[in-house]
């Protein structure tokens, strides 16, 4: 069948990272991270269904420093995947392929994700009365 020894091209590592390629692989990476996040969602729901004691354990783990650090990362992954996913949906409709547009919408996706992440966390802390 196919010849396994034939030369492979292109070699990704010789290319300078560009906004297009970096955001593309970031979309995939955040997708994998979010799939892992579904395990946290399942744990949280199962703990809530098990009763107050199990739920307290889950809440304590999520509320710990490490838990909050992970949750912050997940929040950014979620908003980035959401914003960049909308960018993908526009591409699927054949829009936004001009090079300058691709660059602008790419930075827009990153910026929106950062703003939404910070906004969500500020509102969450405000919601539990920590900012008063």
């Amino acid at each position: 069948m196919s010849n396994q020894d034939r030369p492979l091209s292109p070699h990704l590592q010789v290319y300078r990272p560009q906004i297009t390629s970096v955001l593309s692989i970031a979309h995939r990476a955040t997708g994998i991270v979010l799939a892992a996040g579904l395990l946290l969602l399942l744990w949280w729901l199962a703990a809530a269904a098990s009763g107050p004691d199990a739920f307290e354990t889950a809440q304590a783990a999520v509320g710990s420093f490490l838990g909050r650090l992970l949750l912050f990362g997940w929040t950014f992954a979620l908003f980035y995947h959401l914003c960049n996913g909308i960018r993908h949906l526009f591409w699927d409709m054949g829009r936004g392929f001009e090079l300058d547009t691709v660059s602008v919408t790419g930075w827009l996706a990153v910026g929106s994700a950062a703003v939404l992440t910070l906004l969500a966390w500020v509102l969450a802390y405000a919601s539990m009365g920590a900012l008063r």
Binding site: A48, G51, F55, E56, L78, L123, A124, Y125, S127, M128
Partner: peptide, 16 residues
């Protein structure tokens, strides 16, 4: 996300 923000810090009773 909005639901989680509203329930931040709430106990089992609020989530249930």
């Amino acid at each position: 996300v909005v639901s989680l923000i509203v329930m931040t810090g709430a106990g089992h009773g609020a989530v249930a």
